[in-house]
């Protein structure tokens, strides 16, 4: 059975970029906000840029929060990208306190604006950083970083970071002025990338390809 890849359209985020990356990898996909179409997905991609509270509201307005949670419970492969990853968590403190999809335990907090040496950090952090894999990665059969043997630099742009309650959920982080920021998280069939794989050159395309190739 060929994979049924759905990119969720909820009015937030650059859908063209992610869809062109999926297409470049040779997969067919639909971009939709239709509940019925989403309920038939084998793979769901949840993009997103902008503010947490606003994005969560847009999901709710379209009743998409429930359908994503249902799909997650059914074991559908889900990939949240950037803000889409942050939405998987319990709550965020971006412009007030907002509840998320609560699929991965933990919270979303601001990147510290000062490092341990008292250097002031420029926020949003924008740029290419190398993924540092944790020992949790090897335990996974479904590996987003499968077959990428060269330096894994990927493109980040964010002001807030995820803080999973269970550090076993962190498969990779990156080092921002000695602050370890979770870059890939996973809980069962639910994945999140803090970076933009669709904007991370060949490395990013390989990550998207790996995700779209996941079996049940």
């Amino acid at each position: 059975m060929s994979n049924n890849i759905i990119i969720i359209d909820y009015g937030v985020g650059n859908l063209l970029s992610i869809s062109q990356a999926v297409e470049k990898c040779g997969f067919k996909f639909s971009i939709t906000s239709d509940e019925k179409t989403i309920s038939q997905a084998s793979h769901i991609i949840l993009p997103g840029v902008g503010a947490f509270g606003y994005a969560m509201n847009e999901l709710k307005k379209r009743n998409l929060d429930k359908i994503i949670i249902q799909s997650a419970k059914k074991g559908i492969n889900i990939l949240g990208i950037c803000l889409g990853m942050q939405l998987l968590f319990n709550e965020s403190s971006e412009f007030g306190s907002h509840k998320g999809l609560e699929l991965v335990k933990g919270e979303v907090i601001p990147i510290p604006s000062i490092d341990s040496l008292k250097n002031i950090l420029k926020i949003p952090n924008i740029g290419w950083y190398e993924l540092q894999e944790t020992e949790n990665l090897e335990l996974n059969k479904k590996n987003l970083l499968f077959d990428i043997s060269y330096s894994k630099f990927v493109y980040f742009v964010h002001s807030f970071m995820c803080k999973p309650t269970n550090t076993k959920n962190i498969l990779a982080y990156y080092d921002f002025s000695e602050i370890k920021i979770p870059a890939i998280v996973k809980k069962n069939n639910i994945y999140g990338c803090q970076f933009h794989p669709e904007k991370s050159g060949e490395v990013g395309l390989n990550i998207i390809n790996n995700f779209c190739n996941f079996n049940e």
């Binding site: 063209l16 970029s17 470049k24 050159g201 060949e202």
Partner: peptide, 11 residues
């Protein structure tokens, strides 16, 4: 931009 985005995968 549209044409570029179809084969350039950086910001």
């Amino acid at each position: 931009v549209k044409k570029t985005a179809s084969n350039v995968f950086v910001p």
